[in-house]
Amino acid sequence: MTDYLVNATGLKKSFGATRAVDDVSLQVKAGEIYGLVGSDGAGKTTTMRLLVGALLQDAGEVSVCGYDIQKQTEQARAQIGYLSQRFSMYEDLTVLENIRFFAEIRGLSQTEWLPRSMEILEFVGLGKFKDRRAGQLSGGMKQKLGLATALVTRPRLLLLDEPTTGVDPVTRQDFWQLVIKLVSQPASLNVERSTFNDESLSNTQHGVSVIISTPYMDEASRCHRVGFMKAGKIIAEDTPSNLRARLNGRVLELRGSPINVLRHVAHQDEDVEDVAAFGDKLHVRIRAGKSELVMGRLPDEIKSAGGTLIDLRVIPPALEDVFIALSER
C-alpha cells in the first residue's frame, strides 16, 4: 500500500494507429492539486478517462485509494468525482433533479441526498437555481453544476477535465476559489467518510486531491504540481516554480520600435531559441548560458538594422515560456 491516493503506472492507450497515451505514470498525494497541461490532442482527456476507468487501458495500472480501477471498479469509483470536458448532465432535468439522480446512483440514501445536495449547491452558488433546467444554465453555471454533482458524495479524488475551457474569466476565478477551498478546508465538506474503509488514508486530515487538466497557464500555475503532456507522454513534471526555474535567466524582455525590426533581429541571432510577442513587448528565449552574450550584442544589432531599443532586461520566466519551450523540443 502506497501513500499515494492515485497511482498510475505505465498507462498506454491507442486508437487505431494513434498512440493517444504512451507510457504515462503519475502519482498524486492526498490534498494535492495536480495539473495536467499540454496542447489540444496531447492526450490529457484520454489520460483522465483512463484514470477514471471510462476507457480500458492497453497496458499499465491505475489504483485509486488502493483499489484497482478495472478490477475493483465500483469501490474505486466510490472515491472519485469526475467532471468531464463535455457537459454531461441531463439538460431536460432541473439542477436539483440532476444532482439527486447522480447522488442516488452513487449511493446516497433517501434521507441523505436532499440536505447534502442543498449544501453542495449553496457551496457552488447554485442554491437559488435549483429548479432551473440544466439546459438553461449559462456555461459557467453548467460547470458549477458538474462540480457539485462530482462532489455530492464527498469523493476523495476530484478529476476535472478542462473545467474552465470556454468559461469567462470571472467565473474561472470563482471556479478556482471553489477548488482551492475544497483542498484546503476539508472540515467544511469532506469530514464524514463513513463509506471509506482504508484506515491508513481515512486517518489523514487532508482535503480532497484534485487532478485538473487545462490548456491555460495561469491555471497550471495554481497547481501544486504540473505534468506537461506532449504526444501522449508526460515530458516534464514538477512544481510550477521548479518548472519556471528551468529557464531562469534565459528569458529576455525587449521593448522598442519598430517591433517588426526587433523581432527580425532577435530571430537572426544564433543563440536565440524563440521569440514570442506579448503585446508591445517581445519575450526572447536564449540558449542556456548565452544570455550575457546576447544582451551584449543585441542593442548594436538593432541599431544597425534601423530600430530603436527602449528596454532590454532579463525577466523571471512565466510558465507559458516553459510551456512553449517544452512544446518545441
Partner: peptide, 14 residues
C-alpha cells in the same frame, strides 16, 4: 450522443 453516458460510466452503477 449527449455525453451523459460519461458521467453515468463513472458512477458505481453496474
Amino acid at each position: 450522443e449527449r455525453g451523459t453516458i460519461e458521467q453515468l460510466i463513472v458512477t458505481p452503477i453496474r
